[in-house]
């Protein structure tokens, strides 16, 4: 490999890795806890825990009875077990915003990566249906693999 090619590959690698932040060069931490995985994938894929910060998960788990317009509440024991797992397996904000974001699709890097056109394409495509349906395009999404973009 020539130096130029290596430089190009490195630059490209950095550019692709940025959106998913720091330690996720290769992989975003997936949900590996069986209960969390089962409950969080009932209506959508189990979004990798590494896609949100601890304070965001905390907020999500505190508002399950109105979860993006649906009641997703669980019994108290399951709620607490899942909350603890998500919080303990994600990185906290050093300075959390007053209202930690809950929608992955509203995060700045997500919007930059997908662009408004893709939001529309996802919504109107029969096979996708929503920008929330990561797996329609990223087959390894639930395992934290997003390199196929």
């Amino acid at each position: 490999m020539t130096t130029r090619r290596i430089l190009l590959a490195t630059a490209l690698g950095v550019a692709l890795a940025t959106p998913l932040s720091a330690d996720d060069n290769e992989r975003v931490r997936p949900v590996t806890d069986p209960l969390t995985r089962a409950e969080c994938s009932a209506c959508h894929m189990a979004y990798p825990v590494g896609l949100l910060r601890s304070q965001s998960w905390e907020r999500i788990m505190g508002t399950l009875s109105d979860h993006f317009g649906e009641d997703a509440s669980l019994d108290p024991a399951s709620t607490e077990a899942i909350r603890a797992w998500l919080v303990n397996n994600s990185r906290p904000y050093a300075k959390p915003p007053a209202e930690p974001p809950m929608r992955i699709s509203e995060l700045r890097w997500f919007k930059r990566e997908h662009g408004s056109r893709l939001f529309t394409v996802a919504r109107v495509s029969k096979g996708i249906g929503s920008i929330s349906n990561c797996q329609a395009c990223h087959r390894g999404a639930e395992q934290g693999l997003f390199e196929d973009d």
Partner: peptide, 13 residues
């Protein structure tokens, strides 16, 4: 509305 066919969640599942 066709309950013999599957449905789809708002997230596309």
């Amino acid at each position: 509305t066709n309950l013999k066919a599957g449905g789809k969640t708002r997230a596309g599942k």
